[in-house]
Design a protein around this nucleic acid. Sequence first.
RNA 1: GUGAGUGUAGCUCAGUCGGUAGAGCACUGGAUUGUGGCUCCAGCGGUCGUGGGUUCGAUCCCCAUCACUCACCCCA
Length: 417
Amino acid sequence: MIKAIKGTRDILPPESAVWNRVEETAREVLSVYGFSEIRTPVFESTELFARGVGADTDIVAKEMYTFDDRDSRSLTLRPEGTASVVRAYLEHQLHRDPQIWKVYYLGPMFRRERPQKGRFRQFHQLGAEVLGSDHPAIEAEVIELLQLFLDRIGVGETELLVNSIGCGHCRPGFLRKLQVALSEIEDRLCQDCRRRCRSNPLRVLDCKREACQPVIERLPSILEFLDEPCRLHFDRFLGYLERRDIGFRIVPRLVRGLDYYTRTTFEITSRGLGAQNALVGGGRYDGLAEVLGGQPTQGFGFALGLERVILLSRQGDRPASAGQPQLFVAPLGEPALDRASLMAREFRRQGIHCFMDFAPRSLKSALRLANKLQAGHVLIVGENELKTGQFPLKRMRDGRQILVSETEVVSRLENGF
RNA sequence: GUGAGUGUAGCUCAGUCGGUAGAGCACUGGAUUGUGGCUCCAGCGGUCGUGGGUUCGAUCCCCAUCACUCACCCCA
């Protein structure tokens, strides 16, 4: 038997209805905040991600689905969305527009990780990007939007973590200090941290091991090294959050795994997700456009894991309201089925949610099926009815039944039986 | 890539201290010649993940392998 690839899965009804509701809510909220949808290709030149995400990141180093096209170009299934959005912005010369560009995307991403709770190889992200503004207020506005969205779909109990990781001017100084500090206490850290000391020192700050915590707490904090503009930016950002009554926790150890982030970074986490507790991750990436060979362009955005959000969403509890047929057409015998299917066509053209089954069934089993589907009414089409032109229309709620002609069916359904 | 746990009916699971398996739900039919839900009765459905070993005999014990799950790692 052929099965779905590891780390991928089918979203079947009625779960697909939950996805639709969540996506619909996202579109509404984003639209209200002035974001338009962008749809970029699911595969891109490998180079885009190698440069945009950072060659040293785990994503690029060992998680991408990369393959050679027939003309030997190296292509990659997108592992994230921001690089593509910035690529599109540059490619279409959108910096010529005077206004800031606000777009969102919604779709599958691909990373070859070991699957676990809340983590898949094909997973879905909702992301939004604001290009062309470095104002801290836009950052608070984006977080405000996320709050509204999470609230609307019934995700409670989240925590907002914020930090600033400085910029190209002030971060190198911090990194040097950090490395010096790390070299002094390296022997008191766990195996993983020792490795990180060399590969990605910032990540040591993010270690979750109990034993490392006292050591990590003594390490220098990036916030002490911010230069004046970065300091000011961060303070203003926090001020905008406070004025919106958005609670947050400053986590100087919050660093992002992607290289292009500058200044503001944030994460929204939740208990109840297991180990993969990040619902949303985002931040500012003023350096990305240049890395991709374009004009310097300020950018700020987030990505949200839809699987994770849906895992927490109360939407799943709601019974599927859509999908119940107003009318179930029950044909008895093959000649009746032919006529019944034409009748169904007419009902549907008039907007009636009409279900027809083509299996040869007894009336009893047809009604059983209608009941299971929670059909509102059943129209019985048998030999006798075709002769007389009068069809029993049965209301399932109370079992009441009337005789109607074919042309009366729709008006009967619409005018309360 | 590493570790742990779990693989028995479509689903959720029981069970056999080694003698080729059962429940509930679901499905089909009947009780009601063309009338659902409740109830009752009957039926359908399993190479006990796969391969090998031990044994007279393995779903059960051993080994390997695959799949799934969770965790590490990393991240959404």
